[in-house]
Design a binder for these strands. Structure first.
Lengths: 202, 202
DNA sequence: CATAATACTATACAGAAGAATAGTTGTCAA
DNA sequence: TTGACAACTATTCTTCTGTATAGTATTATG
């Protein structure tokens, strides 16, 4: 990115602060008033910032500024699922407990949800209370960690899909692997998605 | 929260979508145009949503809407530190590699930074490549995981501050604990902050 | 049953806001 | 030294925008 002059940096910082505090971008005149200059001068600064790629301007629209990298594309509202019920559409409003704004760079894929883990079968990688990010997909690679719906209960396990059937394994050695014949697996087990991230508060 | 009518829900959903896509809230007229109604009718809906506590309106300001719970207070830009140099102010612009928008609910305390972990001394709880969230504080409780600056290198360790000196311990048993006399500790070791969260992409 | 809230139309107004015109002054690199 | 860029002033124009006035019809709800 091109270098900014001191004044341009100050203007960018003001726009960022304004957005952080107000929830919407400032008008050209608000920028001008803050620096005690005329609207035209402020517009010049904003144009320079646009030209140098630090923000985007929607011509003609009031408050039509978006901060590059901090715009709407930077954050995604990811739903946290409460209980997961079989048969229901996964992201139904009823199942969504809350949403969390996460950086898009963490959200790979477009159908993603969060799940709070309760058991310790995946210890030490995933512990009870952890929040896992799950990308919705019907199949996973051999050995991938996935959220699996067994009959009516969602669990996090490593999945080994083989000719002889399906094996669900926890990393915790005290957890006995679950084995399903192909017929059983087709009837009882449904892979909801792959675990692509873990967040743990300490 | 009070219940919304179907139309009010639709308006709220539109405002949310608009904000997500554009990066700033819609004007009253943009809401009106979307639903094919007059500005006054749209303003009525927005007033109802304000009265019921779903959004905040700044009277007289264009696009003066803020979504409650999704407003500026929901997301915090947390700096990711590249290398940490001793003596320098911790959050100096030079040391900030990038920032990441994280939900405020994850950010406890106001001076917080992120650090990418390189060693495996804290395995299996913290692995190389993990992103740890650190709350800046000069002292931590006995046994807390902290980011510690030893001479000029930042590491993540459990800290045991005792009368006999300071012990820095990794969870990984193959890592030999570091012991410092009180004099050595005062000279060489600086606690930067407590690790309050871990994010791992899988 | 009456009253409040909902959900609108139609028109109008004043101030807000982006942008345009027409300059000035200073800096800095080719 | 010359031209591009930066950083402004001052004024004007038109459109945008929130809000107000004055209604109407429908739907809840106590």
């Amino acid at each position: 990115m091109k270098t900014l002059t001191a004044k341009q940096q100050a203007v960018l910082a003001f726009v960022e602060d304004f957005f952080q505090q107000q929830g919407y971008p400032p008008t050209v005149r608000e920028v001008a008033a803050h620096f005690g200059i005329q609207p035209r001068a402020a517009a010049d600064h904003l144009s320079a910032l646009k030209r140098k790629g630090y923000l985007h301007r929607e011509p003609g629209r009031s408050r039509g500024l978006t901060l590059v990298g901090r715009g709407p594309e930077a954050v995604v509202e990811v739903p946290i699922l409460g209980q997961i019920a079989a048969g229901q559409p996964l992201l139904a409003t009823q199942q969504v407990e809350d949403t969390l704004p996460l950086p898009r760079s963490w959200v790979r894929g477009d159908e993603v949800f969060l799940l709070r883990v309760s058991g310790d079968s995946m210890a030490p990688l995933i512990l009870p209370g952890d929040l896992v990010m799950v990308r919705v997909q019907p199949r996973v690679d051999r050995g991938d960690i996935a959220v699996v719906l067994i009959y009516d209960e969602a669990t996090v396990k490593r999945v080994y899909e083989e000719a002889g059937g399906l094996v669900l394994k926890g990393d915790n050695p005290s957890f006995t692997p679950l084995r399903f014949s192909p017929a059983e697996a087709a009837e009882l087990v449904q892979i909801l998605g792959k675990v692509v991230g873990v967040y743990r508060a300490l």
